[in-house]
């Protein structure tokens, strides 16, 4: 397999791989995320309260950090210098739909606070930051498609402050509760020295996601 030079996790409703190694699983759809949580994570009950977008981002991140062997709580300097920059095309549409169902019927109008809190796409970045105690920048960009050149550009820009030393970066998207896709990787300053090369690396990961 061609080396991408980046550690990465790819997952969708029926497929999971870590650095190109396929993870065996039984469930599909949202149940796959629960299976991965129970089999590989298991110490964060708040997972079950998350929307599908956050679950997918959370699980992909956990699998990636486990693969890299990064300690949960790094030094103060580290947690301040780790940013999160995610991309997706449908933002919080799935959570928006779920919430809308609770307010659709005027005779059965019970807005759900637990669903409402996920009606912003950047909540997934917050869930990941809280879990890992990261306090660096966090952003969620909505792109029509996984445009690797735009992604590489935004990632390079994120290093232009005086704090960011590394970025958890990825694509997270969910159109329905059982339909999602995500990839997650960690980008370091040296990776953005050549933005075209970074875009090419991201494209290889996206190819995995689409296969």
């Amino acid at each position: 397999m061609e080396s991408r030079g980046l550690d990465f996790v790819v997952l969708n409703q029926g497929f999971v791989s870590v650095n190109g190694r396929v993870l065996e699983h039984e469930a599909e759809g949202n149940a796959l995320l629960s299976e991965l949580y129970r089999g590989h994570i298991g110490d964060w009950p708040k997972f079950f309260k998350m929307d599908t977008l956050s679950k997918a981002g959370f699980v992909a991140t956990e699998l990636l950090l486990k693969e890299i062997g990064e300690p949960r709580c790094g030094s103060e300097e580290f947690i301040r210098s780790r940013a999160i920059v995610l991309f997706g095309s449908t933002a919080s549409l799935c959570a928006d739909r779920n919430y809308q169902e609770t307010i659709q019927d005027k005779d059965n109008y019970y807005p759900s606070p637990a669903l409402f809190v996920y009606t912003l796409p950047n909540i997934v970045t917050g869930e990941i930051a809280i879990r890992n105690h990261w306090r660096g920048e966090s952003s969620f960009y909505v792109l029509e498609t996984p445009d690797v050149e735009q992604m590489a550009f935004h990632l390079a820009c994120a290093f232009q402050d005086n704090d960011t030393e590394s970025i958890l970066a990825g694509w997270v998207d969910s159109t329905m509760n059982d339909d999602f896709q995500a990839f997650m990787t960690v980008i370091r300053k040296e990776d953005v020295a050549d933005v075209d090369r970074l875009a090419a690396q991201l494209q290889l990961i996206i190819n995995d996601l689409n296969n």
Binding site: S112, P113, A114, V117
Partner: peptide, 17 residues
């Protein structure tokens, strides 16, 4: 159960519903 403030709001909705 380690519930949080959003859970409290959800319980208020449950009692009404």
């Amino acid at each position: 159960l380690g519930l949080d403030s959003i859970d409290a709001l959800e319980l208020i909705v449950l009692m009404e519903k």
